[in-house]
Simulated scan of single mutants.
Amino acid sequence: MTGHGHFHWTEFVTRDPERFKTFYARTVGWTYEAQTQPDGECYWVALANGEPVGGIFPTNRPGLEGIPDGWMPYLAVDDIDARVAKAVAAGAQLMKPIFDIPNVGRLAILMQPGGVGVGWITPTQDQSPKST
């Protein structure tokens, strides 16, 4: 598992997950494992040689309109609540309340100063990177 200050996970957010699943399967050989999220929606864990390497997060559902396709990295932090407070004080914007994903971790989606989105995560202990 990655530690504080290291990138922990990345996911491709897209309105057309099948298109990009096919693209990465054909070009780099990824296979996928479907995971049902707490909201009942499907998330795709991308696998390279059977090992998780990232995810595909579908945005083709209500409440996610206007989110552009692109890669979203997640930076591991030691204490999400304390670190987000520091980030906000330093000019970041918290895009939605900090949230928990069981067996994954506690997460925040931030807009950094300058307008770039990034995810932060305090991973669940003893877990390899999983979907967010």
Rank of each mutant, 00 (worst) to 15 (best):
H4L: 04
R61E: 12
E11G: 05
K130V: 10
A46R: 00
I98L: 07
I121G: 13
I121H: 12
V53N: 12
V118T: 11
N60I: 06
V45L: 11
V13G: 02
T14N: 01
G115Q: 05
M111G: 10
T27E: 09
E18Q: 15
T2E: 12
W71P: 01
N103H: 12
W9N: 03
Y43M: 10
P102N: 04
T132S: 08
T122N: 07
G54M: 01
H4N: 14
E41R: 11
V45I: 14
T2N: 12
A25Y: 13
P123A: 10
Q93S: 10
P123E: 15
V116F: 01
R83K: 13
G115M: 00
V118P: 10
Y74E: 01
M95Q: 08
T22D: 14
L64R: 14
M95I: 00
P113Q: 10
T22V: 13
R26M: 11
A82N: 10
E41C: 05
T31M: 11
R61T: 11
A90C: 05
A108P: 14
M111Y: 01
P102I: 02
G3S: 07
P17Y: 06
V88E: 07
R19H: 14
N60P: 09
T2W: 04
V28W: 08
G5T: 10
T31A: 08
G50S: 13
K86E: 15
K86R: 15
Q37E: 09
V88D: 11
G3H: 10
Q35G: 04
T122F: 11
Q112I: 01
T2K: 13
G119E: 01
M95V: 02
W71G: 00
I98P: 07
P68A: 02
D81Y: 14
G63C: 08
